[in-house]
């Protein structure tokens, strides 16, 4: 029993140390993150800091007209046969970043956010240098445009969603996905080349990523990542994708892990029995 006592002491010592250097230290180091998350109730899929939104029940037909008048000089909408006005390289040269094709934008962007974004891109994205200017549109015009976009949008998932929502600035090179905008253009536009996201889930974890994407300035003040207003569904879909690509062997690891632990348990049984037998007559 003396040995069990020593073991207990050992477990307490190791346990306290582990608690101190992992949970405790991390909770203290990441305090400002938790505080920000708490302060802004992140993730906030209502984007409540942007104020109220008029009813978004516009007319798609009018929206199409408005789109062609105000948006099509920079954006394409392949879903309705409107091609991008410039090839990506030229677009990146002139705007700093390739403007997105808007075919599916409403399927992954929150519509309220989209309304405020079109009204004042810099304010909604919380990114002053954003390439898109405020167009001075009427609320009704914006609602019409959103209705038009919504009539064409289809749901995208996983890799496709990643490419559409993040892929203009970020790549995932382990999946052979490269940012649509060339790196030097991005560096000029954002001040640095945005990180590759192949294993970002391992580096940051879902808890942080969800909050960060939802409101980048809250967690990393001064960052050149704009708020993009992903809705809840798209955020979750994206998290699942990022987790899969960063940790492709998760399932195998758990399976092999269980087998190895079961194997060790049997080994413990055998070695214990043998030890008992050998030590039977030793006191």
């Amino acid at each position: 029993m003396k040995e069990l006592k020593i073991l207990a002491v050992l477990i307490v010592i190791v346990g306290v140390t582990y608690w101190g250097i992992e949970p405790l230290a991390h909770s203290i180091m990441h305090k400002h993150i938790e505080e920000a998350i708490h302060k802004y109730h992140l993730p906030d899929y209502e984007f409540s800091d942007l104020g109220s939104t008029p009813p978004l029940d516009g007319d798609p037909a009018k929206g199409k007209e408005a789109f062609q008048m105000f948006c099509a000089s920079c954006h394409g909408l392949k879903a309705d046969g409107i091609p991008a006005p410039m090839d990506p390289k030229t677009a990146a040269m002139s705007f700093g970043v390739v403007p997105p094709d808007l075919s599916n934008i409403t399927s992954y962007t929150d519509k309220k956010f989209l309304f405020h974004f079109i009204k004042d891109p810099a304010k909604a994205s919380e990114f002053k240098k954003i390439a898109m200017p405020a167009m001075g549109l009427q609320d009704e015009q914006i609602a019409d445009i959103i209705a038009y976009l919504d009539s064409k949008a289809k749901k995208v998932h996983g890799e496709e969603l990643f490419k559409e929502a993040c892929g203009r600035c970020h790549g995932a090179k382990y999946q052979k996905i490269y940012a649509e905008t060339p790196p030097d253009a991005l560096k000029k536009y954002l001040g640095k080349v945005p990180p590759d996201l192949s294993i970002i889930m391992k580096a940051k974890g879902e808890h942080y990523l969800v909050a960060f994407i939802n409101k980048p300035q809250a967690l990393l003040p001064g960052t050149s990542m704009p708020r993009v207003g992903l809705n809840k569904e798209a955020t979750e879909d994206l998290m699942k994708y990022l987790d899969e690509i960063s940790d492709p062997h998760k399932e195998q690891r758990q399976k092999v892990g269980i087998i190895v632990l079961a194997y060790m348990l049997v080994m413990i049984g055998l070695t214990y029995a043998w030890k008992k037998k050998i030590w039977k007559n030793i006191h």
Partner: peptide
Amino acid sequence: AEEKVSRRDFLLYAMGGWA
């Protein structure tokens, strides 16, 4: 007084086999 390991010690074989 300790037990001699016999060459036919079943447990030892089981352990070796499992290893």
